[in-house]
Amino acid sequence: MTLLLRSVARTDRGLVRRANQDAVYAGVHLLAVADGMGGMAAGDLASAITIDAVARADGDHSESGLVDAMRQAIEAAGVRIRNAVAEDPTRDGMGTTLTALLFSPGNTAVLLAHVGDSRAYLRRDGHTQQMTKDDTFVQMLVDEGVITPDEAHVHPRRAVVTQALQGDPVSPALTTMTPLAGDRWLLCSDGLSNVVREDTIADVLATHPDREACADRLVDLAKRAGGPDNITVIVADLEAVT
Rank of each mutant, 00 (worst) to 15 (best):
L98M: 07
A41C: 03
Q72N: 12
A100F: 09
M94C: 06
L101M: 00
A86H: 01
R91I: 04
G43R: 10
D52M: 02
G95R: 00
L102N: 05
T50Y: 08
D44H: 04
V54K: 04
G59Y: 03
M70T: 14
H61P: 07
I74N: 01
L98E: 13
A100Y: 05
L101H: 01
A100C: 09
Q72E: 12
G93P: 12
S64Y: 10
T97L: 02
T108C: 09
G95A: 08
A113G: 13
S62C: 04
T90P: 02
A84L: 03
G116V: 12
N83I: 00
S62H: 07
N107L: 09
V79T: 15
R91L: 14
V54F: 08
G95Y: 00
S104H: 00
A46E: 14
T97P: 10
P89V: 03
S47C: 11
A55H: 10
A48T: 14
A46S: 14
R80D: 14
G39C: 08
D44E: 15
S104N: 06
S118Q: 09
A113Q: 11
S64R: 15
V67T: 15
L66A: 06
A73V: 13
N107G: 08
E63R: 15
G65R: 01
A53F: 09
L45I: 07
L66Y: 13
A100G: 06
A55D: 02
H114P: 06
G39W: 01
D88T: 00
A41V: 05
G43K: 06
R91V: 01
L45M: 02
L102V: 09
R82V: 00
I81W: 01
S62Y: 00
P105D: 10
G106K: 05
R80C: 04
R80K: 12
R71G: 00
G38L: 09
I49V: 15
T50W: 02
V79G: 08
I51K: 05
I74H: 03
L102Q: 10
R82D: 02
A41D: 06
I74M: 02
M94L: 00
R56C: 05
D60F: 15
R119W: 13
S104E: 09
M94R: 02
M40Y: 11
L66M: 02
S118F: 03
G116N: 13
